[in-house]
């Protein structure tokens, strides 16, 4: 798909997502992820970080996209917003890992060529971060992410109201993002 059509597609999906269309949101995230992965791999290589770091970065960027999507002006195309979020997050991550340097404003739309495949989409780090969440949040995150349960099922299973599950899930995602931020890895 050429860049313009892809950007239009992403923008449409995200607009619908902002109006509450969960399917469109899922499609958007799924479609964006491979591009994010390529960008992350390229940056890791440039800064001498192991390729296994890339998937952590992808997950952290996805969290940022999710938690900050309210800063996107729905009347604008999604490309510049996404590129800026990704860039800021990459600078943040690489700085935290002790790698100074400027990160160019990568155009997410332009990342097309498949450079290399990372088979490390299962991240131990993220698992450890989930462990650090408080009990109801942790159980909810596990139920939805690992067991693929929906909000309703999770609510029944944990004997909570759906609303309470939604609130706890949102807090859990914010907490995860904060854990990522505070998670300084000196050993790398």
């Amino acid at each position: 798909m050429d860049r313009q059509r892809r950007e239009q597609q992403w923008t449409d999906w995200m607009r619908n997502a902002m109006d509450g269309d969960v399917q469109a949101y899922h499609r958007f995230l799924t479609d964006v992820t491979p591009q994010l992965r390529l960008l992350a791999l390229r940056r890791c290589r440039e800064f001498g970080a192991p390729a296994s770091d890339a998937e952590d970065i992808v997950q952290e960027v996805l969290l940022a996209v999710h938690l900050k999507r309210g800063t996107w002006d729905v009347s604008r195309p999604i490309g510049p917003w996404l590129s800026a979020i990704v860039r800021n997050k990459l600078i943040d991550v690489l700085r935290r890992r002790g790698r100074q340097g400027s990160v160019p404003l990568d155009d997410v739309m332009e990342t097309l060529a498949a450079e290399e495949k990372a088979d490390t989409t299962d991240r131990l780090d993220a698992e450890q971060l989930v462990d650090q969440l408080k009990p109801p949040q942790r159980d909810i995150v596990r139920a939805i992410s690992l067991e693929g349960a929906g909000v309703r099922e999770t609510a029944q299973k944990l004997n909570m109201s759906e609303g309470a599950v939604r609130v706890a899930l949102h807090r859990a995602l914010k907490a995860l993002a904060a854990l990522y931020r505070s998670d300084v890895r000196e050993d790398r």
Binding site: G20, L29, H66
Partner: peptide, 19 residues
């Protein structure tokens, strides 16, 4: 956590949108 699992997680939270 697999990235796909994270995406499911984020989608489940799609209803919370602060502008």
């Amino acid at each position: 956590m697999k990235t796909d699992d994270l995406i499911s997680l984020l989608s489940a939270d799609a209803s919370v949108r602060q502008r």
